[in-house]
Amino acid sequence: MTVTLGKDLIGLEHLTPEQIRLILDTAEPFKEVSERPIKKVPALRGKTIVNLFFEASTRTRISFEFAEKRLSADTVNVAATGSSVSKGETLVDTARNLEAMRIDMVVIRHGSSGAAGFLGQRIRSNVINAGDGKHEHPTQALLDLLTIRDTHGKIEGLKVCLVGDVLHSRVARSNIWGLTKLGAQVAVCGPHTLLPRGIEELGVTVFPRIEEAIEWADVLNVLRLQLERMEKGFIPSLREYYRVWGVTPERLERSPRPITIMHPGPMNRGVEIDSRVADGPNSVILDQVTNGVAVRMAVLYLLAGGRPELADAAKRGGGGAE
């Protein structure tokens, strides 16, 4: 059976381990494209992609844009502010108007959980979720998986702990799906106000103290603490958060093994992660960023223009590469 992805990438929850592995394996050769003197291949020539960002994003949007451009697609960026969205147009109307201009793919970030899936069901273009509410951020989890696999040579059997605000984190959710599907042991660790209730049911271990997580883990994925959480009373203060949950060299020193340190960015240095850890020898935080472009190129390549009806016609007509 040949593995394919279908029309959209909405989340990792509904992907099979084989589909996830297909994306990771496809990302490998795309890393090399970014090292070429001319960082561009013609695979998506003539495709038009709209990056529809209803929420602020720097890293993800730029990463997608690089991925699109390095595949030779034509891209347009639409931000919510300064567009018709701020005049009250609905999501579907926005997308349908874009489709009327003959686009091929939409990369969407949206504040509402389920927005990407909702859109995917209503338009013909391929839809890629670049983060929807508290639901999923699949390409972030895929780049995390690729970075873990690069660093450790495997994912199966590894102990990966997500640290911090798991409750509000689509990154955490996508990571939990992806990691468990590929056979990793997954744990979470953070203030119980920031852990979803019943998370154990996903097969996830809960560590009440960061010291215990550090003793257990091969990989720590330190989540960003969104500063507005403090105002809403989830945590008492940033200083206290750092004191109780901060990933510091002193704490890591007590680990029986070197721990790979990851962070999806942007970091709050001195809050969830100490600078000496973020810049330390076991930090793969910048590898994550590099891998992000390769993973997004792989997803765009695998989803773009699946038109098998043309394949049959081409076969009948002869030709094709030997």
Binding site: T26, P29, V41, P42, L71, Y301, A311, A314, G319, A321
Partner: peptide, 27 residues
């Protein structure tokens, strides 16, 4: 050299072909 990404029939091939390694040792 893997030429997959330069194929003229990428639009029409069914499942996307697996891409092999490209490694050129010199300029």
């Amino acid at each position: 050299l893997d030429i997959t990404l330069y194929r003229d029939d990428l639009e029409t091939v069914g499942p996307k072909p697996v891409i092999g390694e490209t490694r050129l040792p010199v300029d």
